[in-house]
Simulated scan of single mutants.
Amino acid sequence: MSERRVLGGNQHALPASIFADDMSYVALGHLHLAQKVAKKEHVRYSGSPIPLSMSERNYPHQILAVEFDGSNIKAIEEIIIPRCVDMLKVPTKPASLDEVLATLKALPDDELPREQQPFLEVHVLLDKPQALLREKVLQALEGKSVRLAKITPHYSQREQQDSLQHRRLSEVSPQQVFALSWNKKFDGEPTEAIAEAFETLLTQVEEQE
């Protein structure tokens, strides 16, 4: 039921040349992340004013203020929108379940209205699938002013390689493919900055498709 399942690749893509030179400004929508089209200052996606996924946690969302002098653009100002609800990643790097649960229990007990509670993404390092993982995380968060948005399990490279070896590419996530490729080339896990950059690129590709 999603348009991403209907549109195939760039079959529906249109060239930037469809926007005539005498157009003063073209404001496009739908894509989450702000960007210029074909490096044209006057053809832009302003992007979503709020985060629409946890991968956009560190992205500076914005709106654009366009000032005209007659039919000519006088100025384009990027206005960064303050984040009214925080987005947390705990821990900053995947850790064992015991460490994660201890970290969650150590979160402050601030009593905030639900609409002000931060969204939380939990990353857990596992040797194998863990029964009742969500229940254990929720139990550790009892009394905490956070909203659990996502639990992301991570497995050892050996475990991932063994489990993915006989699976089709369509059955694995882009993140798993990226992590395995990175490990094979650099013998280790990608840094948080690299992982977040990959998530941003993945979001852009998915939206453009």
Rank of each mutant, 00 (worst) to 15 (best):
Q157I: 04
L133P: 10
S2V: 13
Q11Y: 08
P49W: 14
E78K: 05
I50H: 08
A149P: 06
M87S: 01
P51Q: 11
L132F: 14
E77F: 01
F178K: 07
R168P: 02
E189M: 12
G70T: 06
N183A: 05
L125D: 08
A179Y: 01
S17V: 06
K184S: 12
V122G: 00
W182L: 02
S24A: 15
D69A: 15
E209K: 14
R5D: 12
L125C: 07
Q165E: 03
H30V: 01
D86T: 03
K185S: 14
V177N: 07
I18R: 13
Q204M: 13
E199G: 00
V137G: 01
R5H: 13
S156Q: 12
A106Q: 11
D21E: 15
Y45G: 03
S163R: 04
S71I: 11
A75S: 14
Q116W: 03
A27Y: 10
K136N: 14
T191G: 07
N183V: 04
L107W: 14
G8L: 14
R4Q: 13
H123P: 01
W182N: 12
Q117L: 11
Q62I: 01
S145A: 15
K89N: 08
A179V: 03
V205A: 15
P113M: 03
G70H: 08
E189Q: 11
K136G: 10
Q157P: 01
E111W: 10
V85H: 03
E78L: 00
E67S: 06
L126I: 10
S156C: 05
E196M: 03
I63W: 02
A149T: 04
E99L: 10
V100W: 07
L33W: 03
V100Q: 09
L169S: 07
L52H: 02
R147M: 04
N58F: 04
S2P: 12
V66T: 09
P51R: 12
E77M: 07
R44G: 11
R83G: 00
L132K: 15
D69F: 05
N58S: 11
V37A: 06
L101T: 02
Q130W: 08
I50C: 02
L14I: 06
L126M: 14
G8V: 15
